[in-house]
């Protein structure tokens, strides 16, 4: 395989992992109208949770349970869901905007724990040398990467199908009812706060799943993989794909992660060394601009919009 193909495999794996995060966020924002400003926190909890549960025993660290990957993955998801429950219970009873503030807060706090709680997270260095699932079965890392691409694709498809089923079920219609008219939903005897909490926790659990999958792929975790910008990248993916449109998650993740990677390469190739950090700022500005402009001019998303227009034309 040539270098470009290798990179493509890597790129696709990350894209698919992010698309799972986007699907989780879409459940919250697109279908339930919940604003999660701390996507990165739940992704990170899932990643660290998985890492701690499956990591080898090390004298300096808490954890190192050496559990099999699937079980560690489920543990990571549960941890992310638990975090969501704590924040959701506090914020969801009240005004919508409190959830935005509380999730922003958990994002900062999780980052602090990742950096400072060295006994659990390995601090700034992170946890390295984690076992990767079935890695020893392959002759080369490239073989493993191809296998993992297939695995992640299956997981993403599974999440997609499960979400489609859930959204088509009475529960999905309840979500819509709560979003459209909370009082009407309440008068049907359904507790809107409970429904919103379910959607929020489920969405965050999916983010945790994605985090765990990421750890299984690269075999280490470090705080550098969970910077606040990730939340905005995921949001950009969501609105590019069109919120309330699960298929758009894949397109959005592909487009935004592609844009980010290409602009990153351009920055590192074109800009002199002393301007590299400014290059990073320009990349981040592109994300901000993408968010603001899409909200202003294509509120249904870059892809969702054309679909709606064609539906009207019929």
């Amino acid at each position: 395989m040539t270098g470009i193909l290798l990179y493509l495999v890597f790129f696709l794996i990350v894209t698919l992992i992010y698309s799972i995060v986007v699907m989780g966020l879409n459940l919250q924002w697109g279908y339930t109208g919940l604003f999660n400003a701390g996507v990165v926190a739940f992704y990170a909890i899932g990643a660290y949770g998985t890492a701690v549960l499956m990591g080898p025993d090390r004298s300096t660290l808490i954890g190192g349970f050496g559990l099999p990957f699937p079980i560690a993955l489920i543990g990571g998801m549960a941890a992310a869901g638990l975090g969501a429950l704590i924040v959701g219970l506090a914020a969801l009873r009240l005004r919508d905007d409190y959830l935005a503030i509380a999730t922003f807060g958990i994002a900062i706090s999780v980052q602090l724990v990742a950096l400072n709680f060295e006994g659990l997270t390995g601090g700034a260095q992170g946890l390295i040398g984690l076992p990767r699932p079935l890695f020893s079965m392959f002759d080369s890392p490239n073989g493993f990467n191809l296998f993992y691409l297939g695995f992640v694709a299956c997981m993403a498809a599974l999440v997609y199908l499960a979400l489609q089923t859930a959204l088509g079920s009475p529960w999905g219609r309840l979500l819509k009812a709560v979003r459209e008219d909370e009082t009407a939903a309440a008068s049907l005897g359904k507790n809107p706060a409970m429904v919103r909490l379910q959607a929020f926790v489920l969405g965050c659990t999916l983010m945790g799943l994605a985090g765990g999958l990421y750890v299984g792929f690269i075999g280490f975790v470090s705080p550098l993989d969970f910077l606040p910008i990730l939340t905005f990248q995921i949001w950009a993916m969501l609105i590019v794909g069109g919120s309330g449109n699960t298929k758009g998650a894949f397109v959005g993740a592909f487009a935004v992660w592609g844009l980010w990677s290409v602009s990153g390469m351009a920055v590192s190739k074109l800009l002199p060394v002393q301007f590299q950090s400014q290059g990073g700022a320009i990349q981040t500005m592109l994300i901000g601009l993408l968010i603001v402009l899409t909200l202003l001019f294509r509120p249904r998303g870059l892809i969702g919009e054309s679909e709606t227009i064609s539906r009207h034309a019929n």
Binding site: G288, I291, L295
Partner: peptide, 27 residues
């Protein structure tokens, strides 16, 4: 964005704006 029916859209927009302002200052 305030005119949009989805109330939180403007909160979302404020995140985008904050990125733009902060990064402009950094630049």
């Amino acid at each position: 964005l305030r005119a949009r029916s989805k109330k939180m859209t403007v909160v979302f927009g404020s995140f985008g704006v904050s990125l733009l302002v902060r990064m402009s200052i950094l630049l």
